[in-house]
Design a protein around this nucleic acid. Sequence first.
DNA 1: TCTGGGGTCCTAGGACCC
DNA 2: TCTGGGGTCCTAGGACCC
Length: 429
Amino acid sequence: MSSTIPIFALVDCNNFYVSCERVVDPSLEGKPVVVLSNNDGIVVARSNEVKALGVPMGAPLFKVKDILQKAKAKVFSSNFRLYGEMSSRVLNVLKDFCADIQVYSIDEAFLYLSNLDLKDFVSFGSDLRSAIKTRTGIPVSVGIAGTKTLAKVASEFGKKKPDLNGVLSFVTSEGCAEEENFINEYLSQLPVGDIWGVGRQYTKMLDSYGISTALEFKQLPESFIKKSMTVGGLRTLMELRGVSCIPLENEEKPRKGILCSRSFGKPVTDVTLLREAVSTFTSNVCEKLRSQGSKAYRIDVFIRTSVFREGDKKFKNSGFLKLSEASDSTVDFIKAAHLILSKIYKKGYDYKKVGVYLSEIVPKNFGQLNLFQPKGHDKFRKIDELKDSLNSKMGKDTIFYASCGVEKAWRGNKHYSHDNNLLDLRMLN
DNA sequence: TCTGGGGTCCTAGGACCC
DNA sequence: TCTGGGGTCCTAGGACCC
């Protein structure tokens, strides 16, 4: 008999990017390791050793460099091809355990367990955990509960409390919710800001009412939550009380917006360089658009100077265009993007970041079948198709539009890469 | 000298209409 | 000598997530 109440598991990879680097180079095990964001700006992943040093998530590198150096920490620029590859390996293991999977992020997935007829949820979690470790080298934590939000809570404790060995279940072996007191004991130890759905602003607001733990939050009146945190907050509240409001979404939905933005390695003043960056980012978003079988009506371009540098002249601007017909053609959008840029660009500023955003996205075959497409369109479509297939076979940027520029002087910093990333991937096979 | 990038959903308020 | 009321649609911005 399969269980009728919903049961979710959250599988969360520990310090994911760091763990990936350790799979490539096992000698990093037990040593302090961090992975940096694009442009080497901030710390986006920390090993436990680095967390113990008090380096916070998102810390600017220059602020923690001394600490890291003193601890002889290993520092890596990000290597998303590696992380993406490792992520799909973990997913492959999950698929052997459960068919109902929602890939939530590069390092997290929800499983729907109610149809599996499981006897013992803790040992299911342990089996899963050791299979992933054996087959991919990645350590994970598993949380099991009657709602997604509680499963998140459980996995956080699974990660933090060593005696749990990476697994915590809020569901008994009979498939019932654990005693209220059992769950509440954990909720009383969880800072309210660590609840899934409660971010910095809400934490501040709740703090002003003296609410600091998840248990205190759980006991607040619904009317108060609805008023101050809208329906999303109410959902979180109900989920903490064991009422499942957020279902598993196991099919991949096409993106409603597609963004490409970068901070530059060095500030850019020259509009020609800016135009090259905008072309490159536009080309990227169009490629993603085509790969999900969509077209878009709208393109936004934004530019800005550094948000942080004191004393600098600050400036930001943005603009958008709507096409009369949805398109997925790189040429169409590069033209539009250049037009927007020429309108929003102002001379004499040190630009630090540029972005291109496609939205108002529809399926490729959406709407009127217009048999009378402008003539030139077919030619450009074929160019894009050829470009996509070549680049996917032979590597990104095998061919690209000339307006994207060759030197890419605006490119971000990557000072901490191993130059043999490709080799790394091959070594794993 | 130095601070990421890519998403989703919700709501308030303006524009417009009768 | 003083500015209706109610509906819908759209968008910008703010909250959240990883």
